[in-house]
């Protein structure tokens, strides 16, 4: 096999698919951001963004242009290299996790056999962007925000890890595509029903689904767990000293991470691209549509939580992570493993 066949064309193909995936993702996030603000506004009986473009649809793009054209200000006492590196690290890490996310049957850039571990590793690195930015700003509020964020993300990562282990016990594979296809049959078919949405893990592992959802909120610094940037206490947390494009990159990284968590929840618990019922006209709908609908559903839940739930106090946050979720998820790993072993349903 020549150099061209072995390396060049696969490399070109990989780069091409990555660029396409990134562009689609970023445009989707522009509209998800708009949707987030609209949901938030609707809960508070406001109109939300409605000026730029029809129904305000181009608001995110106007914001993008505003951020890029502003002057980036670097504090004179900041550690300049790390200060500018931090938003880059945050954005690149958040985007790179999408390389293994299967959005439909076979629609994945890298179908690696430790996909879930890769996503877990990348999302555990997400804290570095924040902690570096907070430290390099050389200012009190960003530093406090960075410390809070580091403690928070490390705490909730543990329970997300155990939730993922529970799903892996049921599936028997670390490949994200296998995790989705394993949900084609499950609890519902064991009970003698036709394949349907009852097979997906959300029902069989319902407590874990709840733990995952709340931990995902905490892991991505979403309200009610947005202590790292609690504006009533810390101005804007780690991002206080950031302006212009570096701030935009932090903002982008946050939303990419949120959508990643929604997609991960879809793959782990909501059956990925599988249709909710195994009937012909639902099977004709392309898998990507089902995947998008499920991600949108989870994102809507995220947005509603942001609008409805008041912010946690910091000690409550830590208590929830270490004293409630950690024992609960640890116990359920034992329960799920014993159940699978006793019934002989283990893969």
């Amino acid at each position: 096999m020549s150099f061209w066949e072995a390396y060049f064309w696969p490399g070109i193909w990989m780069a091409l698919t990555s660029v396409v995936a990134m562009v689609v993702l970023l445009v989707a996030i522009a509209f998800l951001l708009y949707g987030d603000r609209k949901v938030w506004a609707a809960v508070q009986s406001r109109r939300g963004p409605n000026v730029v473009g029809p129904f305000g649809l181009f608001q995110s793009f106007a914001d993008l242009i505003k951020f890029v054209l502003k002057e980036p200000i670097i504090p004179s006492s900041a550690n300049k290299g790390v200060f500018l590196l931090a938003p880059l690290v945050a954005t690149v890490l958040a985007l790179s996790a999408w390389a293994v996310m299967p959005v439909a049957e076979g629609w994945v850039i890298a179908d690696i056999n430790v996909g879930i571990l890769y996503i877990f590793a990348i999302s555990s690195l997400g804290v570095y962007g924040i902690i570096m930015g907070g430290w390099a700003s050389n200012s009190k509020y960003p530093f406090l925000g960075a410390l809070r964020s580091a403690a928070q993300m490390v705490s909730y990562e543990v329970s997300i890890g155990f939730v993922i282990i529970c799903v892996l016990l049921v599936v028997g594979s670390l490949n994200l595509t296998d995790i989705v296809t394993a949900q084609a049959d499950g609890l519902g078919t064991r009970l003698g029903l036709a394949p349907s949405l009852l097979d997906w893990h959300w029902l069989a592992l319902f407590p874990m689904f709840v733990v995952f959802f709340i931990s995902a909120l905490a892991e991505t610094n979403r309200p009610p767990f947005d202590l790292p940037e609690a504006e009533s206490e810390l101005v804007a947390g780690f991002a206080t000293e950031y302006s212009s494009t570096p701030f935009l990159m932090f903002f982008l990284a946050e939303y990419v991470a949120i959508v990643l968590m929604c997609a991960l929840g879809t793959v782990l618990f909501l059956g990925g691209w599988l249709p909710p019922l195994d009937v012909a006209w639902l099977n004709w709908v392309p898998g990507i549509i089902w995947f998008l609908l499920k991600v949108l559903f989870l994102f809507f839940m995220f947005a509603m939580v942001k609008a409805i739930v008041p912010r946690y106090r910091y000690d409550q946050l830590m208590r929830l992570g270490w004293k409630v979720f950690l024992p609960l998820s640890l116990a359920s790993v034992v329960v799920v493993a014993s159940f699978l072993q006793i019934t002989g349903w283990a893969p």
């Binding site: 690195l125 804290v127 430290w135 580091a150 490390v154």
Partner: peptide, 12 residues
């Protein structure tokens, strides 16, 4: 993801 974060935490 875990050990170096704590390192950084302490050093900072």
């Amino acid at each position: 993801g875990a050990v170096a974060v704590l390192f950084l935490f302490v050093v900072m």
